[in-house]
Write a protein that binds this DNA or RNA. Structure first.
Length: 221
DNA sequence: CGATTTTGACCAGCGC
DNA sequence: GCGCTGGTCAAAATCG
């Protein structure tokens, strides 16, 4: 049923283009806060590096295309490859996963596809890109520009905090994400995205539309 | 009143 | 086969 290729939204942006997108910058969106920004207030969110790296290596890659990354686009470079020492916690069926909490969440994917009341495992084995990262934040929910609806919450083993399950509210979009706070370090939130958005980011379009109109206007001179 | 969250039940995969 | 665990469903509750 999932043979056809959906278009990936939003289109890849360069880091410089992010400057024009205030909602993608802190504190609204902690994803784009470099870990080196130690001057940030403790109350604001901060993207931290995955536990795959040595402590000294903890840094955020400045050239990462974060927007496409969140949309699951291969352009982000997380199609199984490592970029500049930065590794996702989870990528495409557990390749490179190391955080124990994510490992447990990622054990499945054996192809069960039945659909009944009460769920069961209905994940595709390999077709859904997955990506996990950690943020240091007081809030569990990141403002990534998409709208999410919570469809479940579950207490997980070896963790004091429950894992929350969200689905993209767009009718045709089947992207999911899991959010969990680490019991080891309660200030850290692990967010796992699964799937590819097949629609534009609402906030992105909201911000881009006036910009594009202005550019069109100026280009006439 | 529609959208979203909460929450308990259900189900499948895995290890033993 | 059985129990444990994680993921999902869906009814009820809550919110805006």
């Amino acid at each position: 049923m999932e043979g056809h290729q959906e278009p990936n939204y939003p289109p890849p942006l360069t880091p410089s283009s992010l400057i024009s997108l205030p909602f993608l910058l802190p504190p609204q969106n902690p994803l784009f806060t470099p870990s080196s920004a130690s001057t940030a207030p403790s109350s604001s969110s901060q993207l931290i590096s995955p536990p795959l790296l040595e402590p000294q290596q903890h840094q955020v890659l400045p050239d990462i295309d974060w927007v496409s990354l969140l949309s699951g686009s291969p352009a982000a470079g997380f199609d199984g490859q490592e970029i500049n020492n930065y590794k996702p916690l989870v990528e495409n069926n557990n390749v490179g996963a190391s955080a124990e909490n994510i490992n447990e969440a990622d054990r499945e994917g054996k192809g069960a596809n039945s659909k009944r009341k009460g769920g069961g495992r209905m994940r595709k084995p390999a077709s859904r890109p997955r990506f996990a990262f950690q943020t240091r934040s007081a809030d569990d929910i990141l403002d990534d520009g998409y709208r999410w609806r919570k469809y479940g919450q579950k207490a997980v083993k070896n963790n004091l905090y429950p894992r929350s399950y969200y689905r993209c509210t767009h009718h045709t979009c089947n992207v999911k994400k899991q959010v969990q706070r680490l019991s080891k370090d309660t200030s850290i939130v692990v967010t796992t995205y699964e799937g590819t958005h097949n629609h534009p980011c609402e906030k992105l379009m909201e911000t881009l539309t006036p910009l594009l109109k202005q550019m069109q206007f100026l280009s006439r001179f």
